[in-house]
């Protein structure tokens, strides 16, 4: 009897939260794909403020950034979420690569150390996500193992995924290649920087969150 009561209480609270659609929405992807640019776009659209610093130096985001209580609306639908911008996931980090962007050896080594910690944190946080937007650079090869590992891990954890092919404003962008690499997912091509196709992104997000 106590067991049935416990199940009822659990189901009640689960439904209660489901109705409110308050979720943890993670932005995942390789470095420099435009996760923070997209996070800024979402925050600017719905909160009127930006979220993090964007540069062309890889691993600019080296710590998990959270923006709480973002509400997005479309018709009768509404989602409330905490947006989690994660450091880019990579399999290698060489401080000398940062020096090519003009950083001193000391700063480059510090950045590399922080970046490795950031990758570890991103992977640890996978378990905390309710829905994930995987942000890929549409001008790059989508078949990289990092992309496949991220999506495979989300699939294994049964976390709903929306794939974003970012940087469609660039001539080299190939959305179809991203679509053919991940045919089981809905892929939406956007330019987070210029806001191209951002309405379709929000519509797709509603569909994925359910």
């Amino acid at each position: 009897m106590a067991n049935i009561f416990e199940k009822f209480i659990k189901a009640f609270f689960k439904n209660l939260f489901r109705r409110k659609k308050h979720i943890k929405l993670g932005l995942y992807g390789p470095p420099n794909a435009g996760k923070t640019t997209l996070a800024n776009k979402i925050c600017e659209d719905w909160l009127g403020e930006s979220m993090g610093k964007v540069t062309n130096v890889p691993h600019e985001t080296r710590e998990i950034q959270i923006k709480e209580q973002i509400n997005i609306k479309s018709g009768n639908k509404e989602i409330s979420f905490n947006l989690v911008d994660t450091p880019g996931i990579a399999t290698k980090i060489d401080y000398e690569d940062f020096m090519k962007f003009g950083l001193t050896a000391k700063k480059a080594k510090k950045r590399a150390k922080e970046a490795t910690k950031g990758v570890i944190d991103s992977i640890r946080w996978l378990d905390n996500m309710d829905t994930v937007v995987v942000v890929l650079d549409a001008t790059k090869d989508p078949y990289s193992q990092v992309n496949i590992t991220i999506i495979g891990n989300l699939e294994a954890r049964k976390i709903p995924v929306l794939v974003v092919a970012n940087k469609v404003d660039l001539k080299k962008a190939k959305i179809k290649k991203v679509q053919s690499a991940f045919p089981q997912y809905h892929v939406v091509g956007i330019s987070a920087k210029y806001g191209n196709n951002i309405d379709e992104f929000y519509e797709s997000l509603f569909k994925v969150v359910g």
């Binding site: 290698k92 490795t116 570890i120 990092v146 590992t149 891990n153 294994a156």
Partner: peptide
């Protein structure tokens, strides 16, 4: 799949001046 992610984590933990990753 989980082991692949753990491999990346373990790699990051071991990066130093001689080992840049995989």
């Amino acid at each position: 799949k989980e082991e692949e992610a753990e491999l990346i984590k373990a790699t990051m933990e071991e990066i130093n001046k001689d080992f840049k990753g995989i």
